[in-house]
Design a protein around this nucleic acid. Structure first.
Length: 776
DNA sequence: CACCCTCGAGTTCA
DNA sequence: CTCGAGGGTG
């Protein structure tokens, strides 16, 4: 007896094995119950299996197939559509998740067949399975899969779908044939559909405001409910086929029609067809095409395993070159006679298998929405999710940007949400799976007070969406964030001053005061101060302090000290010794004192002053003192600095404890000036081979680090921009270049490689042209 | 008033 | 790396 609350498997493979086992049990029991009127298990056991499977799928969303019983049961209940019994059971496919498993399956099937097998290879469309019943060439019903035996009647909508003929072409059609296929929305049409939803939302809001409907937030919420952004093409297709247009009107009708119009069909098989006139599946496709049914243009056949691997490999690389989303490849035995010989299990044929690519989108549970406080005090809500493996890594969190984005995405705490990696890197919550709600979900409410220090949160100025914690000086989150920022690469680049060290230096180290209450004392740290520091170890997932198993006391760690070695003890050293980390930190702080002026400016966390503005200011004024002494107009005269940044600087220097930071850093030996700089307004050292040119570096450029490439551009007198625009003159792209390369191609910006980049920054564009006059 | 650009934030991996 | 927000510039 398996209980839902038992220990869940630790690995994905175990989870997969168990979920397959449970699915077989559940489907078997359900088939027996519905199909043969036989009850093979009691209700309690059946419920137990379902709950266990649900628990598994919550923890390992990737094991949940499109045809999981947890989905079909929920969907079938409360359906407004009439049931339709399939003439031939609509089976699903068994899955494999690696090429090894696939090769194994092929070998096994080959030997079961007892003769040479021709493989039929096709793409597995991420859509909605449908069965079309034609009698004497006339469409009589269209049904979803349902539980495989009985589906939902969606004939009325299906008749409207592009590619579903009401009458088959040609003549001599069999009295009965069931055509199986996949209804989907092309990726491009999906994007348009979401754009339409967004326009309709805006229309609702604008209309409401014009009518004096007042409360914009309420209107936004209602608009998001009426015209939600669709999480993915499959959900949009599923809903599109199952909507009840006759009950809609006005804008909802418009949206519904657009949704229906975006649906497409591709057929990939037959259900009932008593005596097909051909001997292979690929020939079946020929017949279906003659009947006017849309077949996939991308299927292939292969007589050997190498062809199978090549097909899988090719589409692994070219997933996005197809007009629809694909989640894998289907490998079938082509010979129809072998289909009969090999037969089927209770839920899947033995003559076909689905190879699944690692999912780029998965479902997971939104456990909570919590907020974080950044170094500037900005409060950002982010999603806390059940761990989910997506595009090759496990994701637990994703930013939700601000309250409005939370509302616009329409997610509620407790929802099953669709998760992906934007650009294959950044986790992003796309939206909720509304169909899986059970009523226990609740809306996110933005906190009114800072979760770290309790201060009242407020927008920085009227009309801002972002709210901020005003407790700049003492809010632990802000101090920690600023100290960490000082150590970051874009600022003073202090090795050993990262997230963990910043936290250790600023959090109250039991039982004493934190060594740093603000960043002012950073350069005054001594070994004596560092060594005693103890930090409470927190659980990576929950953020709760870890407790010792025996004593129940919080576990502490002392990152800056170690026990003396035996050799040291012999020399009479008994007490704790400073750790390597402590020594590195102090060395690096010492080195940081003579870094470039602009780095200090960035390190001060002045609003709107990032590396670019800081460089311009540093170059113009030559010292922090000169910047501090400047008036608004003098600051705004600097290129790239306007009134707002000027105000921001003046406001910053007007604060006592801000000036104290600068003073104490200087007193500790920080050199906050450019040696030999002639004073404010000095002519910018012009010239250089790249003067007037804007260059963007992206990807890995051999011989340069990311910063090194930017330094090289600036050193040569060029502008190192961070994004590609039509003003960009060159894009230096190495392996791993992403969207910037694509954008450069789009805009026709000249693209160069690492070797050409080296020539460009050392000798200028002319040398590049002399070398390769036909490039670009 | 368009653009284009920078800032700031969260997140993961080599 | 990507996004939203908002500043700067022509």
């Amino acid at each position: 007896m398996t209980d839902a609350d038992d220990q869940l498997p630790q690995t994905l493979d175990e989870a997969r094995a168990e979920s397959t086992r449970l699915t077989d049990l559940i489907v078997g029991a359900r088939d027996a119950y519905y199909g043969r009127d036989a009850e093979i298990v009691d209700d309690q056991t059946y419920d137990g299996w379902m709950r266990r499977l649900e628990a598994l799928e919550r923890t390992f969303p990737e094991v949940q197939g499109q045809d999981s019983p947890t989905l079909s049961v929920g969907a079938a209940q409360g359906s407004m559509f009439a049931p339709v019994e399939h003439a031939e059971r609509m089976l699903s496919l068994d899955n494999v998740f690696s090429t090894d498993e696939l090769a194994e399956w092929c070998a096994k099937t080959q030997s079961a067949a007892g003769r040479a097998v021709r493989w039929l290879l096709e793409l597995k469309i991420d859509g909605l399975a449908i069965s079309l019943r034609y009698e004497h060439g006339v469409l009589v019903s269209a049904a979803t899969r349902g539980d495989g035996r009985v589906g939902e009647d969606v004939t009325v909508n299906a008749a409207q779908v592009t590619g579903i003929p009401s009458r088959l072409a040609g003549s001599g059609h069999p009295p009965l044939v069931e055509v199986r296929g996949e209804v989907y929305i092309p990726v491009a049409a999906f994007d348009e559909l979401n754009a339409l939803q967004a326009r309709l939302r805006e229309r609702v809001i604008a209309g409401g405001l014009a009518r004096g409907g007042g409360d914009e937030e309420k209107l936004t919420r209602s608009a998001a409910r009426r015209f939600p952004a669709f999480a993915n093409p499959r959900n949009a297709a599923s809903g599109g086929l199952r909507q009840q247009l006759d009950k809609k009107n006005g804008m909802e009708l418009e949206a519904g029609k657009a949704r229906l119009a975006s649906l497409r069909l591709l057929v990939h098989g037959i259900g009932a067809w008593p005596s097909p006139p051909v001997a292979s599946q690929s020939e079946v496709y020929g017949v279906l095409a003659e009947w006017g049914l849309p077949t996939s243009p991308s299927f292939r056949t292969s007589d050997d395993i190498d062809g199978v691997s090549a097909f899988v490999g090719y589409y692994g690389e070219h997933r996005h070159d197809v007009e629809h989303e694909i989640d894998g490849v289907v490998v079938k035995v082509d010979d129809l006679a072998l289909h009969d010989e090999l037969g089927a299990t209770s839920r899947a044929p033995r003559w076909a298998i689905a190879y699944k690519y690692p999912p780029e989108q998965v479902n997971t549970t939104l456990l909570d929405i919590v907020v974080s406080v950044g170094r500037t005090g900005r409060v950002t809500p982010f999603a806390v999710m059940a761990p989910a493996r997506v595009a090759g890594s496990v994701v637990r969190q994703a930013t939700l940007h601000n309250q409005e984005v939370v509302v616009a995405k329409g997610v509620l705490i407790g929802d099953t949400v669709v998760l992906r990696k934007a650009g294959d890197v950044i986790p992003e919550v796309l939206g909720p799976v509304v169909e899986l709600r059970d009523g226990t979900e609740r809306a996110f409410v933005m906190p009114t007070h800072c979760p770290e220090c309790g201060a009242l949160l407020a927008p920085a100025k009227e009309g801002d969406i972002d709210v901020r914690c005003p407790n700049t000086r003492a809010c632990p989150a802000q101090v920690r964030g600023r100290v960490e920022h000082i150590g970051s690469r874009g600022a003073l680049d202090i090795e050993a001053l990262g997230e963990v060290t910043a936290a250790a230096l600023t959090q109250p180290s039991v039982p004493a005061e934190p060594p740093l209450r603000t960043e002012a004392g950073l350069f005054e740290l001594t070994l004596d101060e560092l060594v005693p520091i103890e930090v409470v170890v927190r659980d990576a997932e929950t953020g709760e302090p870890k407790l010792d198993d025996e004593t129940g006391e919080p576990v502490k760690r002392a990152p800056f000290r170690r026990n003396p070695t035996t050799a040291e003890k012999k020399e009479g050293l008994t007490g704790p010794q400073p750790s390597a980390q402590a020594l590195t930190l102090l060395e690096e702080l010492e080195k940081a004192k003579t870094k470039e002026l602009w780095r200090f400016l960035v390190a001060l966390s002045i609003r709107h002053v990032g590396p670019v503005a800081a460089r311009a200011l540093a170059q113009w004024f030559g010292s922090i003192a000169a910047i501090r002494a400047a008036v608004r107009d003098e600051l705004a005269a600097v290129e790239g600095v306007g009134g707002i940044i000027a105000d921001s600087l003046i406001e910053w220097f007007a604060v006592d404890w801000h000036r104290e930071i600068v003073e104490r850093w200087e007193r500790a030996g920080a050199r906050m000036e450019i040696p030999g700089h002639p004073g404010p307004g000095a002519a910018v050292a012009a010239g250089g081979v790249l003067e007037g040119l804007t260059v963007v570096a992206t990807g890995t450029l051999e011989g340069y680090t990311r910063e090194g490439a930017q330094e090289a551009i600036i050193a040569a007198g060029g502008k190192a921009a961070s994004s590609v625009s039509k003003k960009t003159d060159f894009v230096a792209a190495g392996p791993g270049a992403g969207s910037k390369l694509a954008k450069a191609e789009d805009l026709g910006v000249r693209i160069i490689d690492a070797a050409q980049f080296k020539i460009l920054v050392e000798q200028g564009p002319a040398a590049l042209d002399a070398l390769a006059p036909d490039a670009g």
